[in-house]
Design a protein around this nucleic acid. Structure first.
Lengths: 129, 129
DNA sequence: TCCTCACTTCACGACTTGTTCAACTGACGT
DNA sequence: ACGTCAGTTGAACAAGTCGTGAAGTGAGGA
């Protein structure tokens, strides 16, 4: 009987109780929130997400990426610009071509993790809705 | 002389070569992309990100969350609505109060991972070339 | 019952974001 | 040096998003 699947109120819900809550168990700086949000937003677009996925396969030049995504070159350049401004990708010039790649292995990891989770958990199930 | 020729093109960059690339090493369905992007977008806002972080500490009622975030109640309700529509949080009613919590432990993990990364790697320096 | 509390939904305005064409830069070949 | 290719930047426009007050819903208490 002790272990119930019905959770009881977190504790109390009066203003006095609210103030007793820890401000932030994971103490995160304002800057970190900004950066994390920027990162998420950069990845929060289907076109850019696919782009990142493609870059996860390896280095690619802009023309190729534009072709693969069926978008005009300037559009691709803009998308890459956003990703670069958030530090998600890096740029490298070789002769007339510019090659883009993921900035960090961590990012590729993160990306794959998110996509896996997205494929596994399709509906919100709504068990408590 | 040209001793800077350490870098060579990824492979080839002609249309013919482009078509030889694997379409997607991690074969991801369109739906998965949509869901992942939605998820990222939901987290891609400072207010919601902080909200999620707070919920990672435990279950909270709407009034408390609104107070903590210094926003009017309807605003909080809307933010929670978005997070719920993306399946990031769940809702549970207890008497007159509605308690929200993170939908999945995976999400909390993901969240913390992102915030850690955001705190560690502050600037992307700028350009790399 | 009727009222109040806790929360949700609606409708509106202010603000970002994303896409696109045109014009520009910078590098290579001749 | 000139022309051309590869890519970037700027402006403009369409679309979506966020926050907010007013009104609505639903559960508990007097």
């Amino acid at each position: 009987m002790g272990s119930t699947r019905t959770l009881e109120p977190a504790a109390g819900c009066s203003p006095a109780e609210h103030d007793r809550r820890p401000r932030a168990s994971t103490d995160v700086s304002e800057e970190a929130f900004q950066r994390a949000a920027s990162f998420f937003r950069a990845a929060g677009d289907v076109a850019r997400l696919k782009l990142l996925t493609r870059l996860a396969e390896g280095e690619r030049c802009v023309t190729e990426l534009a072709r693969a995504a069926h978008v005009p070159l300037p559009t691709m350049s803009q998308q890459l610009r956003i990703l670069r401004s958030e530090g998600l990708v890096t740029r490298r010039r070789v002769a007339k071509h510019v090659y883009y790649a993921l900035a960090d292995a961590h990012i590729r990891d993160f990306l794959r993790s998110a996509l896996e989770h997205a494929e596994e958990g399709p509906p919100a199930s709504s068990d408590d809705d």
